[in-house]
Design a protein around this nucleic acid. Structure first.
Lengths: 343, 343
DNA sequence: CTGAAAGCGCTTACAG
DNA sequence: CTGAAAGCGCTTACAG
């Protein structure tokens, strides 16, 4: 097996042409005789030659690697969201002849990303979430590395793509309110994650157009811990709040837990909705009404945008992807309200 | 920002030495004057020079990339196990100056891996699970790519590392049996995954040393689907089986679900144990007794082994890592049985 | 201890 | 249409 790998020089010699010619036959750049090209290609096929991409990269100052920046926090990286992103990105990159290089970053510690960049191992990068104070993003900007951000950011200069969390949260809230809910609570994670703020906006949007609404609403942000959730939910139960909107499936799991322990019936005594429809909540009883995003598609498109940028194409700054609302047993009928299925 | 990157030639010229000398000052290879080395290093520090790893790699026929082979199946990649592996691997690789290149493979389709190999983008690879008919493994072997397998395989020639699933399943089963369980069932996933077989062996081992045991046991393998689980569990309930051992947390989630729907009390009416103690079961009520492996450590060690191999060191064929049994509310007291905590 | 030169496997002006 | 030569940014025998 360990035969020395074929090189372009070997082929050139074998065929009695120059390396230049072989190179051109493969790349299609530069003029070359149709017959010569065929000869070269036939030889390549027959001998299963494949070029050394590293050498090619050195000559062209490219690596054909994309950096995938993933949060390295313990509980975050387990979220199915990032896995699905990864799958979408990996597939798209692969189809375009690129490979994916992993960089895990944690709160302000971006050494892996720095290494990938200073070692010139990547041509561009994809951020898989956006932060209020985004150290990785700043680093990429300062070093002139092309990148796209999955998530939203105020900096209109950065190419970004996101699901419509704001619209989704607005519509979900509207449906609940229009369905007759008089009191509801929103529970979310760290405000440091921009997506948390975005969803909050959507929640508020829903009441913008309903000045006459005289119910009660409350919001709890920066909740990370099961015990915190417990406390909050206990409070909500004594206040007889009618519905809880959970910003992610981890939080929702905690909420459901409390219900189960206290033998509170969902949706009869309180309704619950969540945001991801992920495997974390799969198999739960009752099934949870939630937003559904096509996360793999998100990853694919993000990667597609980056590839375009690397080809030198102009790329529009912001892309927003749709959502669906999946109604299930954890809520009473709410679809009457609008029922629009976004593209 | 976009200043052309410093090269070794620039430094040589600036310092009035040869490129050879600069190279040696950095690598420490070859004789070089102490004073010269200091001058070079001072310059490098001052100007934040960092070498072009791709060029270095071309000259040395190395890439400083490790291939991480991940299952690309939809529901599999979401298992927290693979994320934790990934974290361990990524950290260890990074500390050693390597980067991690992703290759997702699905049932027999290994194009991403092939590309990484034929494009000469990786120096070695890590398989994150082992299969009965392991296409990626065979490919790596045939192409002479050094690799380590996370998981177990019969081929004693492959460097492999695994948690002691067999011992863990044996001890867990023993404890249950010695604790007085008279009838129990084992539910597992695809036999195609070697780990499924390994656990089954451990289960059987437990009865090996108890020829006098006159309870009943049954096993259900190749279960993947929630509905299948439902059917099985219904059967088990009517048979009044006392305990169910689930081979993974997805299956366990399904089992718990049935219990919840049917209002069966765990552990009073039936006991349940699982195998991963992952976030998939976190926040469940009751808390589930399960095996606990240190998966990040597993990833780290696997990566460490591969790095050793790449350094040309001899590496022992098999490594087995310990486990703990975490007893929780889903079982009645079983720890009396042995209580050994493995290293 | 140091350097000139060849080499890693490609690409790409430039010249014909 | 084709090729000789220089170059990408390193390393490494070889010679001194």
């Amino acid at each position: 097996m360990e035969e020395r790998n074929l090189t372009i020089a070997d082929i050139a010699q074998e065929l009695g042409v120059s390396k230049t010619t072989v190179s051109r036959a493969m790349s299609g750049k530069g003029r070359i005789g149709e017959e010569t090209r065929k000869r070269v290609q036939a030889y390549i096929e027959a001998h299963h030659y494949s070029p050394n991409v590293v050498a090619k990269g050195l000559a062209q100052n490219k690596t054909f690697n994309l950096g995938l920046v993933l949060p390295g926090d313990y509980n975050i990286v387990e979220l199915p969201f990032f896995q699905k992103c990864m799958m979408g990105i990996s597939r798209t990159a692969s189809e375009a002849g690129y490979d994916v290089l992993l960089s895990m970053v944690t709160a302000g510690r971006i050494r892996q990303l720095e290494r990938a960049v200073t070692n010139r191992k990547i041509d561009g990068a994809i951020l898989t979430r956006t932060l209020a104070d985004d150290v990785p993003m700043r680093y990429l900007q300062e070093n002139g590395v092309p990148f796209v951000a999955i998530g939203t950011t105020n900096d209109a200069g950065v190419v970004q793509i996101d699901n419509d969390h704001r619209g989704a949260c607005r519509e979900l809230t509207e449906r609940l309110v229009d369905g007759g809910i008089r009191s509801l609570a929103l529970i979310g994670g760290r405000e440091e994650y921009i997506v948390t703020k975005t969803r909050l906006q959507g929640f508020e949007d829903a009441f913008e157009g309903r000045p006459g609404w005289n119910g009660s609403r409350q919001t709890f942000l920066n909740i990370e811990d099961e015990r915190e959730v417990e406390k909050i939910v206990e409070g909500l139960l004594t206040e007889r709040v009618e519905c809880i909107i959970c910003m992610d499936d981890f939080l929702c799991g905690c909420v459901l837990n409390v219900m189960q322990t206290r033998q509170i019936a969902v949706p009869e005594q309180i309704q619950v909705v969540s945001f991801y429809d992920s495997s974390m909540l799969a198999n739960r009883t009752p099934a949870i009404t939630s937003i559904r995003f096509n996360v793999e598609e998100l990853g694919k498109k993000a990667c597609g945008l980056l590839l375009q940028m690397l080809e030198g194409e102009e790329v529009q700054g912001r892309t927003l992807l749709g959502y669906e609302i999946r109604e299930r047993e954890s809520t009473k009928m709410i679809s009457a309200a609008s029922g629009i299925k976004r593209r």
